[in-house]
Computed example of a mutant assay.
Amino acid sequence: MSRSERTDANSQAVLSALGNKYSAEILCAAGTPKSAQTLSEDIEIPIATCYRRIEELVDAGLLTCEGRRLSEEGRRTNIYRRTLDEIEVDFSGERPRFSKTRRTEAKNQLHDQLQD
């Protein structure tokens, strides 16, 4: 697959993920590490819908699984956090172009410490 084809595929995945209902809300809520259950409760959406949106956002590189934690019920659950703080889409050319402001690990650690 050429670089252009990969860029087109990634652009399609990002646009598709962002175009789905609740995706933006999940990204906003995932500024701190959260489980799918917590995200579902925070945004008040069905858990099955939340899992579908999470999978799309992870596939598009907009959300990442940061690891696993024990839930209150004692089950291991994945914890997710967004990978960026901002995204800008430019449609003026032949293909959409994205400008992203990625979250750094340092920013994540600082944010986590301020939340405790």
Score class of each variant (00 low, 15 high):
residue 2 S to K: 09
residue 2 S to I: 10
residue 3 R to H: 15
residue 5 E to Q: 15
residue 6 R to K: 14
residue 6 R to H: 08
residue 7 T to K: 10
residue 9 A to C: 11
residue 10 N to Y: 02
residue 10 N to K: 12
residue 11 S to K: 06
residue 16 S to Y: 14
residue 17 A to P: 07
residue 18 L to T: 09
residue 19 G to H: 11
residue 24 A to S: 04
residue 27 L to V: 05
residue 28 C to E: 08
residue 30 A to K: 04
residue 30 A to L: 07
residue 34 K to I: 10
residue 35 S to T: 15
residue 37 Q to W: 07
residue 38 T to G: 09
residue 38 T to V: 14
residue 39 L to P: 09
residue 39 L to M: 11
residue 40 S to L: 04
residue 40 S to E: 01
residue 41 E to A: 13
residue 43 I to A: 01
residue 44 E to C: 04
residue 45 I to P: 00
residue 48 A to Y: 05
residue 49 T to E: 08
residue 50 C to D: 02
residue 50 C to K: 00
residue 53 R to Y: 03
residue 54 I to C: 05
residue 55 E to R: 15
residue 57 L to M: 01
residue 57 L to W: 01
residue 57 L to G: 02
residue 58 V to K: 09
residue 60 A to N: 02
residue 66 E to W: 05
residue 66 E to A: 05
residue 68 R to H: 15
residue 68 R to Q: 14
residue 69 R to W: 09
residue 70 L to G: 09
residue 71 S to T: 11
residue 74 G to E: 09
residue 75 R to E: 05
residue 80 Y to C: 08
residue 80 Y to T: 07
residue 82 R to Y: 05
residue 83 T to D: 05
residue 84 L to P: 00
residue 84 L to F: 11
residue 84 L to R: 02
residue 85 D to H: 15
residue 88 E to L: 10
residue 89 V to A: 06
residue 93 G to H: 12
residue 97 R to P: 03
residue 99 S to G: 06
residue 101 T to V: 13
residue 102 R to H: 04
residue 102 R to L: 11
residue 102 R to I: 02
residue 102 R to F: 09
residue 106 A to C: 04
residue 108 N to C: 14
residue 110 L to Q: 10
residue 110 L to A: 12
residue 110 L to S: 10
residue 113 Q to D: 12
